[in-house]
Design a protein around this nucleic acid. Structure first.
Lengths: 148, 148
DNA sequence: TTAGATGTTACTTTATATATTACATCTAGT
DNA sequence: ACTAGATGTAATATATAAAGTAACATCTAA
């Protein structure tokens, strides 16, 4: 499969807006950091706005976080940008005439739901604040190593 | 993205072999239940054999489970057939000159690893035996409803 | 009024999971 | 040994979804 980077890019956008809140926050500037393109950034920002995570508006006003970083979880971002929202996928064209083919779809759906819940519980415990903290920690470490 | 059904199809194969152990277990027969094609089934069976879950051999011998269904977990199957094995994916081409772009990849990798562990812990608790039980339960319920 | 941004759509490109085909290889049964 | 019929394996084609691209309407602050 071709992997989706929507979640990673959305976190990137939010972290960028938090860290560079006094600089250029245009979709073009953010896209340069993501190494993607402005339209994709804008589409993701719309999804984040609809989920109540980001305050954006047309015109020249800079976007800002709609909640404190500590109040935004990875799960919030995941649910904002991954509409399908399933980490595992059922094969939905099995043979209904067979005991296995006729029932395994529902069986797997229930099992996958349990896995999904476990993953989402963990995602709920990771905040944008902790991710931004980690980014800064790594940045400091890089500087310290570079100056040795 | 086009969703991968490797895990679902692999579980399907194992459940089929468990349930239909006295019938035709050729890759062609299994492919008819999966509504896929024999080559895909064979490729998945090779992966399952390499992981020690399935005993197959060339020639006419029927495949059989290498372990009891209660000793085969969804995690075992997942690790057997999903070589990449990451449910979430880091965008690996961010701008290294930016504080965010230069560090977020590693930051997200650590966070995603925690989510992955939570999901895998749950997968480890789901066995092939419980999945096959669930398939039979659904089959009985369908029959009961059909005979009303 | 206007510059410059977002919101939005349509289309193109690219990546990759699966389907398809073919054939080498092996084994059980004769 | 021979053969039928199965698996193991690779090459290629196809389908599909993610991301890239371009264009433009819309809005807002100065």
């Amino acid at each position: 499969m071709r992997y989706s980077h929507r979640l990673s890019d959305a976190v990137h956008i939010l972290a960028y807006i938090d860290i560079y809140h006094d600089s250029d926050l245009s979709s073009t500037a953010i896209a340069a950091s993501v190494e993607s393109n402005p339209a994709l950034v804008r589409r993701l920002m719309v999804a984040l706005r609809r989920a109540g995570l980001l305050a954006t508006q047309q015109g020249t006003a800079a976007p800002r976080l709609a909640r404190q970083p500590a109040k935004i979880s990875l799960l919030d971002v995941y649910q904002a940008v991954e509409e399908e929202g399933n980490l595992l996928h059922v094969d939905d064209k099995t043979n209904p005439k067979c005991v296995v083919g006729g029932n395994i779809q529902e069986t797997l759906r229930v099992a996958y739901d349990e896995v999904q819940r476990a993953a989402e519980t963990q995602m709920a415990q990771i905040t944008l604040a902790s991710l931004v903290d980690d980014i800064w920690t790594r940045e400091r470490e890089k500087k310290a190593n570079g100056n040795r």
